[in-house]
Amino acid sequence: MSHTLYRHPNLEILEIKNDSITFILSNTDISVANALRRVMIAEVPTMCIDLVEFEANNSVLVDEFIAHRLGLIPLTSHKVDQFNYTRDCSCAERCDNCSVEFKLNARCNDHSYSVTSLDLLSQNDHVIPVGSSDGRPDTVIPIVKLHRGQEVKLRAIAKKGVGKEHAKWSPACVATYQFQPKIVINQNRMDELTDRQKEEWVQSCPANVYQFNAHQRQQVTIEDQMRCMFCMECKKKADSLGKPDLVSIEQKTDKFIFNVETNGSLKPEEVVLSAIQIIKRKLTDIQTQLQDTVN
């Protein structure tokens, strides 16, 4: 660890997909990377169903069970900044500035009927169940299956919240970082192995990091070092072959490769950006608080 403070981390976005982002954060400390990861998981606000009022339910699932399932349905939260937390809102109980009302009214007159997130009708077009607008059957979320004569009728209230209150509010399904591996094969040692031993050694890696080119001068090469998960199986194999210095694997701890996947409530880049704004706001708030405490 050097004695200078890294004030200017570098960030390079490798890829953005509909629901995931991969980026490299470098020139910074692990505590900063960890703060970013933790905020993305626990402190980025989204909208989720928080209160459910049942009018009728003679389905096979009890009220609490259905309420829990409704809570876990991700809701599109791109406009979450326009909402207040109910506890901070000026209203007495709840209002349109701090909540969104949903209605669900499903009755089975047929042999059976699957109640899904499509049956949840929102009073606000910006806050709807994820996947219900693209009309693809694979993005619809099942809630309960009804038999003939059964019905579910309820009113659900979605509120703004964060993941540290309840994990349902977390926009990130996956928020991880990994270190960049640095793998060096000692080619002189490798040349001492027979083709069969090389093949065996390549096979020892469960993540398929290495490749044996049987037709190209019998060379062992690194196919994709980013697959490495530091299981050290290849080191163990090298030891058992009597060549402990066959390969060296190190973690480069100055680069963090982030992978963030969202549940669809926010876009992946919105999660990252929002996390940074939250960190900045948190620090400003604490500074003013401290100033007030001292004076």
Binding site: I49, D50, L51, A67, H68, G71, E165, H166, K168
Partner: peptide, 8 residues
């Protein structure tokens, strides 16, 4: 009313 979040 069923509250889906038990802790506040």
């Amino acid at each position: 009313m069923a509250d889906t979040a038990p802790t506040k």
